[in-house]
Every structure is written in structure tokens, then in C-alpha cells.
Design a protein around this nucleic acid. Structure first.
Length: 200
DNA sequence: ACCCCGATCTCCT
DNA sequence: GGAGATCGGGGTT
């Protein structure tokens, strides 16, 4: 489908990379999904980012060249995947929050028995990873490489209408609208982060 | 040793 | 649509 995204295209500010990624599709382990919701994360200037406090073993790939996958473990049972952006040496990544399965629906459904309808298969960052078979072992995988097990296909056309709002579940930087999505039933529900999440 | 952080599932209303 | 349960890792002290 179309062509693979290039490292050069992704080596930009995460907010720009986030817009670029909407409408693209991610292909992994027999499933292809159209990305409909993402979040941008930066480095030292972004208190919500894993790399806010500097380079560590965990966030190492966020600092490397663009086009690699940054996969992290969460809640003792889930994984979330980001596409690394920015130039080598600077931290930046785009969290893949939700996607529509466009190929391999049956496989995705097997991996996600709890999903009750197709739009729920990759509706949420950890669900997306589960549906596509992405785990810790794929941390650092280059998604711009044709031989890679996980690849990113360019959007057939730019998305017309892009919505934005605060990032989901993050306690910090609540007023930074770096969550971007297109209209789709697969977009995940919004949750405010932090202690104040119950105050509204 | 400790504290903070967060996605999903299953009920329930 | 909301409530409550579930768990391991990262970073700092």
C-alpha cells in the first residue's frame, strides 16, 4: 500500500510527526491497522514525557534516530508503542493510541478476545499493541525498514479534519493539547490523569 | 526501601 | 458510563 514512511519524514518535532502519522497504517504480524489517534511527547521540556528527567536505560530509544519503535511496559501486564521522532540525540516520540484494523481482523480478534466489536480491537494503546502482537521484544525495531517485522505505510492522502486535545491519563501538562485524532469509532475514550481525575 | 504512575476488564447501575 | 480490581517497573532516597 503506497510506500513506507522514511526516517527523514519522522525526524521532526513530535507534534509534526503526530500529524504525519494520522491516516498511516502500521503493519505487524499479519495485521494492518490505520492509525486514528496519537499523542506527541517531547523531552526535557515536556513533563509528561518519559524522557523529561533525562536519558535512562528505559527511554534510551526515544533519544536515538527517528523511525524506531519505543515500546514500554505498563500496569504490570500491557505494552504501549511509540514511533520515535526528532533528530538523533534529541528525545521525541509519538504514542500510537488507537487504530482501525484494515487487514487481518480475524487474527487481531484472536489476540483480543475481550473486544466485542471490530472498532474495539485496537481502541487504546495497549489494545493496539495486543492486536498487532507488539511486545517488549520490539523495542527499538526500525519501522522504516522493508525487512522489519513492523512497518509504517504512508497515508494514501493527508487527513482533512484533525482534532486535538489534552493527552489522555497524564497528570502533568494537562493544558498541552498534544493528543490528535481523526473521527473514528476506534478513538479511545478520554480520561484525565492524576489525582484530580475524579474531580470532574 | 519507598513512592508514583497508568490501561483494561468485569461487573453494575 | 462509572466503580473497583488488577501489577510490575522506574526513579529517587
Amino acid at each position: 500500500m503506497t510506500r513506507l514512511l522514511t526516517r527523514e519524514e519522522l525526524a521532526v518535532d513530535p507534534v509534526d510527526a503526530a500529524h504525519l502519522l494520522l491516516g498511516c497504517s502500521i503493519e505487524a504480524h499479519g495485521v494492518r491497522a490505520r492509525i486514528v489517534e496519537v499523542e506527541a511527547y517531547r523531552g526535557a521540556d515536556d513533563p509528561a514525557s518519559h524522557s523529561y528527567r533525562g536519558r535512562t536505560a528505559r527511554n534510551e530509544v526515544m533519544w536515538g534516530p527517528a523511525g524506531r519503535l519505543y515500546v514500554y511496559f505498563i500496569y504490570g501486564m500491557h505494552f504501549c508503542a511509540n514511533v520515535v521522532s526528532m533528530t538523533d540525540g534529541e528525545a521525541g516520540a509519538v504514542l500510537l493510541r488507537a487504530a482501525e484494523i484494515v487487514d487481518g481482523v480475524e487474527l487481531a480478534a484472536q489476540r483480543r478476545p475481550a473486544a466485542r466489536k471490530p472498532s474495539d480491537l485496537a481502541r487504546g494503546p495497549a489494545r493496539l499493541c495486543t492486536a498487532l502482537g507488539i511486545t517488549r521484544e520490539h523495542n527499538g525495531v526500525d519501522v522504516t525498514e522493508p525487512s522489519s517485522p513492523i512497518r509504517l505505510w504512508a497515508a494514501p492522502e493527508p487527513c482533512r479534519k484533525v482534532n486535538s486535545g489534552p493527552r489522555v491519563g497524564v497528570a502533568a501538562a494537562h493544558d498541552t493539547p498534544w493528543r490528535f485524532w481523526v473521527d473514528s469509532p476506534a478513538v479511545s475514550p478520554y480520561r484525565r490523569g492524576g489525582k484530580r481525575s475524579k474531580e470532574r
